[in-house]
Design a protein around this nucleic acid. Structure first.
Lengths: 181, 181, 181, 181
DNA sequence: ATTTAACCGAGACGGTACGTCCCGTCTTTAC
DNA sequence: GTAAAGACGGGACGTACCGTCTCGGTTAAAT
């Protein structure tokens, strides 16, 4: 026997309209635009409704991240090749925007948990590639950091397209340093 | 022939009081606290006066950066040694806070120019060290990026103390890869 | 021939629960508390249900008045004695609260019809007493007004206990003025 | 040596515009219309400004009362004549509205102090008349109550024009009862 | 010593956003 | 058909800032 009454949560219409607009806003106006006020102006969904379901901008952000997951790709086991592929994939995603905007939004909205979750998701493919190539844990950490960090920093702090060539060169450096051991 | 009358600009008292408080605020309450309102509440210097001299929060931030410059240190020419020294210095400064808070403030306040200027200043010592050791330009870029970026990312995005050991290991990797050529 | 289906109107449970709570609310929080929202919070009866049966706060008020009628008492025919008795009864009822609160509620809720009805009910015993003593119509109006009005004014406008002694003195004045004719 | 800075309080313009409109609103829409919101809609003076100077509707009401004082008239010493004159004056003022609306507003806005003050001001002329005629204190209270209360009740609770004739008759009753002692 | 320009504080004012609360209507579900 | 639970648009509320402005009084340089 279930409770009577209408089921809780936003109508599917409402949810779709709001989150779609939220993503647009995030990309076009930056993270500070994710307010109930702004969402209302853009969608016509009333302020009350927005507040009801997403009480804070961080809640909107969290819903957005859940909605736009990161597609995976199987590593081939060839370290150099896989690494270069992942570098390209990350650069593409940073260039195509959502990711960079998300990173800035995460800094502004100041949700440490969300930040860690999102960054882990971003770096996961690199870890997987190195693990598949048999790189031990501590070296793996170093490798991911030196290859990916500069890219994230470009997108997040310096507002410029990620330096793809440099990342490839660093990947080579890492691969070479490993093969020599 | 100079114009008569009192010279423009804030009284030295006013300026010192406000900027000192501004730094405190930035570190204790984050970049969004750098408003005329908040500065008035903290210092007693009236809102009018604050607006007169620093019309926007970004202006306060800029004045702060000018006021707290980064001390330099002469490189010895020994690449490995100098690099490790610089890693330690950067980690120290990130740990002792102002730098991390500044970085976040720069993301929030969205002043691209200021960001570039500040990051260049932070990375300048590394560039100098590598230049003193005779590393050519393109390799220098790569080295600085792979060593320093992970540290900045820790402080800026992940809100955790910079991974000092990892940075030292990456510095070794870089040094080794060079000597092998 | 009656209509099929369940008879209209609230379940007796629901009605009793809501109106009891409504009276409490009126006395403890004043007339503005008689909202569907507030009644739901207090009774647990859902907002929908309250709206269904009493679409406006005034409807609740009207139902309350119907529910709490004024008990009558037979006049003895002795003018002075009956008048003093009625003065005491009115003062008691004003002191014991519901009546004063009702009056204020009627001013706030702005239902002229209800007001007249309620005030007539309050003054009816006085009219009856005077009629039983053979006072002609126009003098009766005057008498009721001069004796009862000050009491209602105390309770309604000045928020203080009705001046019982003064009312008795005025009743005496009225009685004396009649007997002299 | 005075404090520096701009003198406090609303600009004379602002004050005049708002209070004039407030009186209009009170008379045309009733006491519940004295909100910052409504005053803004009517005057164009921004909500902020209204709140700054009159934080509550009761404050507006108080300012209104201060602004529209009650004109006095010297008693001649002839009790019957003066009483009838005052009855007429009160009836006129109740008919010409502001007073009746004020009374209702005072019930709604629920400021006991203000109510007492305002009612005392209303009744003061009657007290003065009786005092001038040498009526002792306790009888004076009774007289004012029996004559004036019915009038106030008409205007306040029953929304009808004050019963002028009845009041005159009651005044006569009072005068007669005194002369017989 | 007197201009003269700039200082500084206090506050008015219009405006916008915020987050909360309530209202009245509607829809979905259960009994 | 009653009742419960809740979505939704709409609006008011009171607060907090923001940026501009106006008014006073003070201060320091240049004449």
């Amino acid at each position: 026997m279930t409770r009577p009454g209408r089921p809780a949560g936003p109508t599917s219409d409402t949810e779709a309209v709001v989150l779609t607009a939220a993503l647009d806003l995030l990309l076009s106006e930056g993270p500070t635009a994710l307010t109930a006020q702004r969402l209302f102006q853009v969608t016509g969904v009333s302020r009350s409704t927005v507040y009801r379901h997403w009480p804070t901008p961080a809640a909107v952000l969290a819903a957005l991240i859940d909605v736009a997951p990161i597609p995976a790709e199987a590593p081939s086991g060839d370290l150099a090749k896989d690494l270069h592929a992942e570098v390209d994939r990350l650069c593409d995603r940073l260039r195509d925007r959502p990711v960079g905007a998300f990173l800035q939004a995460l800094v502004v909205a100041a949700e440490t948990d969300l930040r860690h979750r999102y960054v882990s998701d971003l770096l996961a493919p690199f870890h997987e590639v190195l693990r598949a190539a048999g790189v031990p844990d501590d070296e793996r950490e170093d490798g991911v950091a030196m290859i990916a960090s500069p890219l994230l920093l470009d997108a997040l702090l310096l507002d410029r397209t990620a330096a793809r060539d440099r990342a490839h060169r660093i990947a080579d450096t890492f691969t070479a340093s490993r093969s020599r051991k």
